[in-house]
Design a protein around this nucleic acid. Structure first.
Lengths: 329, 329
DNA sequence: ATGAAAGCGCTAACAT
DNA sequence: ATGTTAGCGCTTTCAT
């Protein structure tokens, strides 16, 4: 290509990278030759020598790219990083701790400029060596364990507390909790926020019906059925996650209680307003989480050396009917 | 690192790549040094020299990574390619033709081993140079225009036809069509299949109420309201896409017609069975589309030279109630 | 304004 | 079984 244009290889490099110090005439010669050959810069070869070795790519580890919440985060990150010419490798973890480390390793082998990840393994201490060698790292949804790094999370406890407060202000005193696996930090936070808020209102917390380790719709449905058909059933239910909410909705419908027992779910979902009744939720803001995470990562890539911090994105109570059902008089 | 282990650089390469011809003793020496330095192979540097220049990465262009249908495809592709150690760059197009070409260019600069894309631009002729230089290429959801390459698509016309047949067998003769933008190939196919099937049953097709270019919930809702409040309203509606289906559902509910007018939507969605009535749909199979596309891409990467082909993934009618509503006697 | 030389981290080809 | 040399496509550094 340098040959075709009749110039030195460095001049080609100058033109392609829009560096100064090239006469307009040579510029055109090079540009022509480049078009003729359909020339395309090889980014990887470039980063091999470039100062800082930037590859303009980052790795993103999510629960699953097919999960709508992750999809929104993915999209926000893509938008924020794409504006800087950075491409995103995304991978799904499926709650498998071994995958987490394997994928991190694979991405590091590709020399990504940084990593954004939803931690699932019991500890993230394994990235300490890389992180201290200046690998930019931002955690999302959950804080890392065994190390310190930036994190962007939803206010899980506060959101759950606002659900409890809302139900209590509606007159409920018998509130039940349906929760996800207790080894997931966010699930524990949500329970804590919920239970503590109930206590704050002077309602005894030791007898709150709590069913946990519900990780899919069916187990949640069964747990809700059990709860609702037991003696002294709850007049309001809080579910900690979408699939659990769906299970609770099914149980309520089966028992004909959809309009008699209150329900608030953590996390918003499509068509929630089209249900009967509309489903009141604590909505998270995945676009904001993704955007903030991308911005923090860029700041770190650009050399920000502040001590690591956790950024909290507020959740939002959206009233749609199910959470406003009153207890029977 | 070769120095630390006290061996030649090539021996290190042999150990890392599990090549034969290294004594167990030296192997251990190298492995130890590698652990001490936290050594990590640089894939990019490797592919620079490796035969075939494989980077073990591919590019994926989707309408949007945040759209559930795309998410499922993304996931299936990730699973199929991940098994071969291939990482996926995903990008969102937002129906913007200029983005399509820009992202393809960006991915080519990263020397991806292949590309899987949902075409949106009017023509894909711009990739002909690369494709004929052996860039593996598979289109999904829509076939390319202006060039020939493998494609994996849903049987749009047949799926829409099965919806029409189902409604007609339920006794309907006045069927309406609510469709997406007519510049989208799949939308046109769905209309064609729907209309042709109606004709096949001897019902005049010239008077079918057709409303098109509905690209979001609100425009679909308004179109459906108009249709349903006009003279001689349809007794059954077919909607060509999720957002359009949602709009139609809202209109039916507003008019109190949810249980009087039949509805079949193209594309399945979460909670469709929880609606009142459950929504009958023509379900696509994004996991199969993604899996097949990934398999075809791998075959091409592995040197398959067959002439390009279009693979059709069948859709499936799922009865849930709304599509089984009978016309008024 | 332009170019030559060195070298990024690796693998291929060829010694030894 | 192990090492040496060259070179992938680029950017850096330093001449000219």
């Amino acid at each position: 290509m340098a040959a075709l244009a009749g110039v030195g290889i460095k001049t080609v490099s100058r033109v392609i990278n829009d560096e100064p110090g090239v006469s307009e005439a040579t510029r055109q010669k090079v540009l022509n030759a480049s078009r003729q050959l359909n020339y395309q810069l090889d980014m990887a070869a470039g980063s091999l020598r470039r100062a800082g070795r930037r590859t303009l790519s980052v790795g993103l580890l999510l629960p699953s790219v097919s999960n709508p919440f992750s999809g929104e985060i993915n999209r926000a990150i893509e938008d924020a990083l794409g504006a800087r010419g950075i491409a995103v490798f995304a991978a799904s973890l499926d709650d498998d701790p071994r995958r987490e480390q394997a994928i991190v390793t694979a991405f590091l082998g590709r020399r990504v400029d940084g990593l954004i990840l939803t931690p699932i393994a019991r500890s993230q201490a394994y990235v300490i060596p890389e992180h201290s060698r200046d690998l930019p790292l931002v955690f999302i949804d959950r804080e890392p364990v065994g190390m310190e790094a930036d994190a962007v999370v939803t206010d899980n406890a506060a959101g759950a507390a606002s659900a409890a407060a809302h139900l209590i202000s509606g007159g409920h005193t018998r509130l039940a909790y349906l929760g996800d696996r207790t080894d997931i930090q966010t699930a524990r936070e949500r329970r804590r926020g919920f239970v503590e808020e109930i206590g704050r209102h002077g309602i005894p917390t030791s007898t709150i019906p709590i069913r946990e380790n519900l990780h899919n719709e069916e187990s949640a449905r069964l747990a809700a059925l059990e709860l609702l058909t037991a003696e002294d059933p709850p007049t309001a239910i809080f579910s900690s996650q979408n699939l659990v909410t769906f299970g609770a909705m099914r149980a309520l419908r089966e028992l004909g209680l959809s309009n008699r027992v209150a329900l608030i779910g953590f996390d918003d979902f499509t068509l929630a307003d089209m249900m009967d009744p509309g489903v009141t939720v604590i909505a998270q803001h995945p676009e904001q989480i993704g955007k903030l995470a991308a911005e923090r990562l860029l700041a770190r890539i650009d050399g920000d050396e502040q001590p690591p911090r956790t950024y909290v994105v507020p959740s939002e109570l959206i009233q749609r009917g199910s959470g406003e059902i009153r207890p029977p008089a």
